[in-house]
Write a protein that binds this DNA or RNA. Sequence first.
DNA 1: CGCTAATTGTTAATGTTTGCACAATCGGGC
DNA 2: GCCCGATTGTGCAAACATTAACAATTAGCG
Lengths: 205, 205
Amino acid sequence: MERAIPDIVVGRLPHYLRALQHMSLEGRRLTSSQELSERLGISAAQIRKDLSLFGEFGKQGTGYQIDYLLNQLRQILKVNQIWDIALVGAGDMGSAIARYQGFTDRGFRVVMIFDNDPSVIGSQIGPFTIQSTDELVVAIQSADVRIAMLAVPAANAQEVADMLVQAGIKSILNYAPISLNVPDDVHVQYIDPVIHLQRMTYYLE
Amino acid sequence: MERAIPDIVVGRLPHYLRALQHMSLEGRRLTSSQELSERLGISAAQIRKDLSLFGEFGKQGTGYQIDYLLNQLRQILKVNQIWDIALVGAGDMGSAIARYQGFTDRGFRVVMIFDNDPSVIGSQIGPFTIQSTDELVVAIQSADVRIAMLAVPAANAQEVADMLVQAGIKSILNYAPISLNVPDDVHVQYIDPVIHLQRMTYYLE
DNA sequence: CGCTAATTGTTAATGTTTGCACAATCGGGC
DNA sequence: GCCCGATTGTGCAAACATTAACAATTAGCG
Ligand SMILES: NC(=O)c1ccc[n+]([C@@H]2O[C@H](COP(=O)([O-])OP(=O)(O)OC[C@H]3O[C@@H](n4cnc5c(N)ncnc54)[C@H](O)[C@@H]3O)[C@@H](O)[C@H]2O)c1
Ligand SMILES: NC(=O)c1ccc[n+]([C@@H]2O[C@H](COP(=O)([O-])OP(=O)(O)OC[C@H]3O[C@@H](n4cnc5c(N)ncnc54)[C@H](O)[C@@H]3O)[C@@H](O)[C@H]2O)c1
C-alpha cells in the first residue's frame, strides 16, 4: 500500500516543474537540489525529500538530469498530456485568460468559453465563439471536460459552480473572491490578488 | 516582547476578512468560529486560536460582532487605509487589473501604469495614462508607492523587479511565471494559474 | 587506480501546526 | 434568579513538516 503524499508536497511539485522547464529552455542538462533551492527559496533537503517520495531520480555526486526529472514530474502531475479547460465569464479577466498563450506548453488549453450576457454570446475571442451558459452543462458533458476556470462576478460564482458540478467538472480554478461550496470529490483552487496583497501589507510599516 | 505571528496565520487572516466583509454586506451582525469554519473550510478551533494571537474579540455564548472583528482585522492587516499600487505591464492581464473595480473596498487602488512598448505608452486605460518604464523609478519614488503588481512577460520580469526594488517598492505581486530574486526586505507573492491547475491534475484520474 | 569534491537518499532530531477537550462565561427563557 | 444551550479562549497532546547530518556513491583528475 502506497503512503499518501501530503498535499503540501503536491503543492510544491509544480514549482519544481516550472523551474526545470526554464532550465531546460536555457539549454541546461544537469541541476542539483542546491541550485533548485536557490532558485525557489525552498531548502535543498526539502526538495530531495519531496522527490524521494516518488522515486530515486538523481545520481550522487552529479545531481539530476533536467529532462529526465522534468518528464518524471510531468507524469506524476499528469501533465504529460494536454487537459481541456472550460472557461466561464468572458469579461476582462476571462478575455485575458482566453488569449493567454502560456497554458499549452504546461499541459492545458481552453477549449470553450461561456457567458450569460446576450450581448457577448456569439462573439469571438480569438478562435472561440462565446457560448450561452444555457448550453454549459451539455457542452461540458459531451466534450468530457474535467477542469473549469471561473471568471464571473462573486455574486454569480456559486450558481455557476453548481452548474459545473452538475456537468461533471472535478477541478475548478476560481477567480471570484468568494469561497465555493462543492462536493468532496471536486477540487477548488482560488486566485484572489487582494488576499496576497493583504498578506503583504501586514509586513509593511 | 511580542511573540512573532506565524506566517501561516497571517496568510489566513485575509480569508477571515473577506468572509466577514461578505457577511457584513449581507446585513449580518453576529457570527461564530463555527460559521466561519463552514464557510472557509478551516476548523473552528484554528480560527479561534488564530484570532486569540491578536486579542480577545469574541464573547462566550454569543460569538463575534462582525463589524467589530472586521475593523480589528483591517487594523491588523493595515488595510484600514488605501494603499497605492504601481502596475507594470499594460497587456491583457495588466489591462484587466487596471480596470478591476474590486480593489478599493478592500484597501488598494492602482495609481500608475507602466509599459515599455512605445505603441501603448501615452494611451489611456480608464483614468490612467500609460507611462514609459523610463519614468518608473522616479515616479514611484516621488509618489512614495510601496506596492507593485507585475504583469510583464516572464523574460522581462526580473529586470523590472530590479527597477522596482531600486524605486523603493517593498511588496511585489508577480503574475509572471518565474521566481524573482529580491533583497530580504522585499516581499513577493506569486499568481500563476498553471501552478494551481497542475496541483489539481495530480488528483484527477 | 586512488583521491577529492560533489551530491544524493534517508534517518533521526527538532520545530511547527493542528485538533481536542473543557472550564469559564454569556444571554435568554421561564 | 436560576438553569440551559451556545460559544469563547486556551493548555496539552498529537500530528505533521522541516532541517540537519551523514553514509553511500559518483565523476573527474592526476
Ligand atoms: N479583472 C481583474 O483583474 C480581476 C482581478 C481579480 C479578481 N477578478 C475577479 O474575476 C471575476 C471576473 O472579473 P472581471 O473583471 O472579468 O469582471 P467582468 O465584469 O469584466 O466580467 C464578468 C463576466 O461574467 C459574466 N457573467 C456574469 N454572470 C454570469 C453567469 N451567471 N454565467 C456566466 N457568465 C456570467 C458577465 O457577463 C461578464 O462578461 C470577478 O469575480 C472578479 O472579482 C478580476
Ligand atoms: N493573460 C493571462 O491570463 C495570464 C495568465 C497567467 C499569467 N499571465 C502572465 O502575466 C504576464 C502578462 O501577461 P499578458 O497576457 O498580459 O501578456 P501581454 O503580452 O499581453 O502583455 C505584456 C505587456 O508587458 C509589456 N512589457 C514587456 N516588457 C516590458 C518591460 N521590460 N517593462 C514594461 N513593460 C513590459 C508589453 O509591452 C506588454 O504590454 C505574463 O508574465 C504572463 O505569463 C497572464
